[in-house]
């Protein structure tokens, strides 16, 4: 028992000392449902306003009754007679049984249409299809001919919104894919394949994150969607398809990387590293963030991460590899060439 408490105190202390990196994604808007950029999110917002109207009205009626009673039906000072006893009234009670039933019916019909509109069981024409795999605690985006992590790139055309059709799978526990501005959320469940239709109508960077508690670092399982003009997207995709850059100048760092346990979990295409438990590093430097969005992908942050990820994302699956400062510098120099 004592040990447990000491342990708790220790961990509190350790967390106070832990260094906090400069956080997050630059210039990403709040992931609010009130700023939708696609059809499913639009539908949801429309239904929300309808709900606000109907429920607001009901609420006002009941509150008015309560406040009327509170203000008008106080016991006068010095009056201890009993008021008239009203046992009930069939017509009134019938009214407040039937009217809510009708309201429920209307609300049900409207929302049911919304369900069938949003929950698509097959991809719309021209949709970009991506397989999303939830891992503890990062997202893998599998485009078919390449895979990336944490940042989902989609093309935007001038004339029409882009449909995104995701196939959701989990490698371990239940996660939930949630991009509030692009649509609803759908859980990512092991041993089950789910689909999610999102839509994005204008270029920009959007954020979201895992919504189903999945363990220690659930809070830092972030998602970024980068919607970019088609030409830009194609250039990005073409680069992703290529194997990793092999720069002789950083051969020392590459050597350390390949002889350390890094390769058991990470893939760098074109080398022997082909692990699948952790993000694909083939084009690490094409991503804006590291650690599934917890920190910006700057040289300093990268060094801090490789030195000991547990300082930045305590509890995450990547251990400190106990490299020396020099080794960390060499490895990071290598990683920084993986554009």
């Amino acid at each position: 028992m004592l040990i447990g408490m000491v342990n708790f105190a220790n961990s509190m202390l350790a967390s106070l000392i832990a260094s906090i990196p400069d956080p997050g994604i630059p210039s990403a808007p709040t992931p609010t449902m009130f700023n939708p950029v696609g059809a499913p999110a639009d539908t949801i917002l429309d239904i929300t306003w309808l709900l606000v109207g109907i429920c607001g009205l009901i609420g006002l009626v009941v509150l008015a009754m309560i406040f009327f009673a509170v203000i008008r039906c106080r016991q006068p000072k010095g009056d201890d007679t009993e008021p008239a006893q009203v046992y009930g009234s069939n017509p009134i009670e019938l009214a407040w049984t039937v009217i809510p039933l009708l309201i429920v019916f209307v609300l049900f019909m409207v929302s049911a249409r919304g369900i069938f509109d949003i929950e698509k069981t097959s991809p719309p024409d021209g949709a970009i299809e991506v397989r999303v795999i939830g891992h503890r605690w990062w997202w893998e985006f599998d485009y078919g001919d390449f895979a990336t992590a944490a940042e989902l790139h989609v093309p935007i055309d001038e004339d029409k919104p882009t449909d995104i059709y995701l196939t959701l799978e989990s490698a371990d526990v239940i996660h939930s894919f949630w991009m509030p501005q692009l649509g609803g959320k759908t859980d990512v469940i092991p041993n089950r394949i789910n689909h999610l239709w999102l839509q994005v109508a204008k270029a920009g960077t959007y954020v979201g994150q895992c919504a189903e508690y999945c363990g220690n670092q659930h809070a830092n399982m972030l998602i970024t969607v980068v919607a970019q003009p088609r030409a830009e997207y194609e250039a990005w995709a073409a680069n992703q398809r290529r194997e990793a850059v092999d720069d002789r100048a950083v051969a020392a760092g590459k050597h350390i990387f390949l002889r350390t346990a890094c390769i058991n979990c990470h893939t760098v295409r074109g080398t022997v590293a082909n692990g699948t438990f952790a993000p694909d590093l083939t084009h690490l430097m094409s991503r804006d963030t590291i650690g599934s969005g917890i920190a910006r992908n700057t040289p300093n942050n990268l060094r801090a991460w490789v030195w000991d990820p547990q300082n930045i994302k305590p509890g995450c699956e990547m251990p400190s590899m106990k490299l020396t400062r020099e080794e960390v510098d060499l490895v990071c120099a290598y990683l920084e060439t993986l554009r």
């Binding site: 949801i44 239904i47 709900l51």
Partner: peptide, 26 residues
């Protein structure tokens, strides 16, 4: 009465599936 009223009304919000997709687990 007042607070349960609010909780009940947001319950109807959450019962509405499309809205629930937006805010469930939030």
């Amino acid at each position: 009465l007042c607070q349960f009223l609010l909780g009940g009304l947001t319950g109807i919000f959450l019962a509405t599936v499309p809205f629930d997709w937006a805010v469930s687990d939030s």
